[in-house]
């Protein structure tokens, strides 16, 4: 077993363990930090899968953006009185049954599908960097989708600000 493979497995197992911890823990702050671990592990996996750009984006967006948002959300929606921030769980059995069954079914599917027999699987490009290709594709073939997703993001941000923002006019009316 070569070193890169060992590191790859490490990252993979790290994110898997973090995900399971998220599912099981009650403490919201722990959840947030496990999520960081999970995302970093996934970023590592992406690097080994030849998607460096995605890996970097993953860290930038999730760790730098979404996670901060989450933590602020936690702060804004809980009365902080020095206690542990705890989130109750329920329907544990039902959740376990459904997700367990789904996991079983997915495993069966993955094992049953003989991927190596597929023709296009032989064209494995190894771990070559696809950054240039990605850039070219985004600016040529997928440029419309690219622009649209940018627009979507803009709209979402404006919408988020609008929804969360204080509506002064309403307040005045209420007063």
């Amino acid at each position: 077993m070569s070193l890169p493979l060992i590191i790859f497995y490490f990252f993979g197992i790290l994110s898997a363990a973090a995900a399971i911890y998220i599912a099981l823990t009650k403490n919201i702050i722990y959840v947030a930090f496990s999520l960081i671990l999970c995302f970093i592990g996934l970023a590592g996996v992406f690097v080994f899968l030849g998607a460096e750009f995605i890996a970097v984006t993953q860290i930038l967006v999730y760790v730098g953006g979404i996670l901060v948002l989450l933590i602020f959300g936690v702060m804004l929606t809980n009365r902080l009185k020095g206690e542990k921030l705890v989130s109750q769980s329920r329907q544990k059995l039902l959740g376990f049954l459904v997700s367990g069954m789904l996991f079983y079914v997915l495993l069966q599917g993955i094992l049953a599908a003989n991927f190596s027999a597929l023709e296009w699987m032989s064209a494995e490009s190894g771990s070559q960097t696809g950054l240039k290709t990605l850039g070219m594709n985004l600016m040529t073939e997928y440029v419309l989708a690219f622009e649209l997703i940018g627009l979507l993001l803009l709209i979402a941000l404006i919408g988020a600000v609008y929804i969360a923002g204080n509506k002064r006019k309403e307040d005045k009316h209420a007063a």
């Binding site: 039902l94 959740g95 459904v98 789904l102 079914v105 069966q108 599917g109």
Partner: peptide, 20 residues
């Protein structure tokens, strides 16, 4: 909301199991 999610996944599972 969670009940809806459970239901939709239950039915997804049923379909998948049927296919398998």
């Amino acid at each position: 909301v969670q009940t809806f999610v459970v239901m939709s996944f239950v039915f997804l599972l049923l379909i998948l199991l049927l296919l398998m």
